[in-house]
């Protein structure tokens, strides 16, 4: 670990602060009887999905597609997660199934 304890604490505090800001801000900025600007409403609607897409890509930031296993275990396991989820639609099953499958792949084949 490259950070000192203090730096870790500051990082965690920033994350707490950021999270609390997203939760408290609407209640601070918009008193109950004021209407929300259109652009903010629009961002509220579209940003969550776009940010989720960013998170999915974020998980692949350290996968070397040109070296090692070329990201095959990751791609196959994501496919397993998607198939399981479209087929059964049970969140926990899809997550547990996909993770166990990935662990099996990286521990035995790749």
């Amino acid at each position: 670990m490259t950070m000192t304890i203090t730096q870790q604490l500051i990082t965690i505090i920033m994350i707490v602060l950021g999270t609390m800001l997203t939760r408290f801000l609407p209640f601070i900025v918009f008193p109950p009887n004021k209407t929300t600007p259109r652009y903010i409403q629009y961002l509220g609607e579209v940003l969550s999905l776009a940010a989720l897409a960013l998170l999915v890509v974020y998980c692949f930031k350290d996968v070397g597609f040109l070296t090692g296993s070329h990201g095959f275990p990751e791609i196959i396991s994501v496919a397993v997660v998607i198939l399981l989820h479209v087929w059964k639609g049970q969140m926990l099953l899809s997550i547990a199934g996909g993770t166990l499958f990935y662990m099996l792949l990286v521990q035995t084949i790749f």
């Binding site: 999270t19 997203t22 939760r23 408290f24 801000l25 609407p26 209640f27 918009f30 929300t36 903010i40 409403q41 961002l43 509220g44 609607e45 940003l47 969550s48 940010a51």
Partner: peptide, 8 residues
């Protein structure tokens, strides 16, 4: 950011 929307 989605929490903003929940809050609203």
């Amino acid at each position: 950011g989605r929490h903003l929307f929940y809050g609203l």
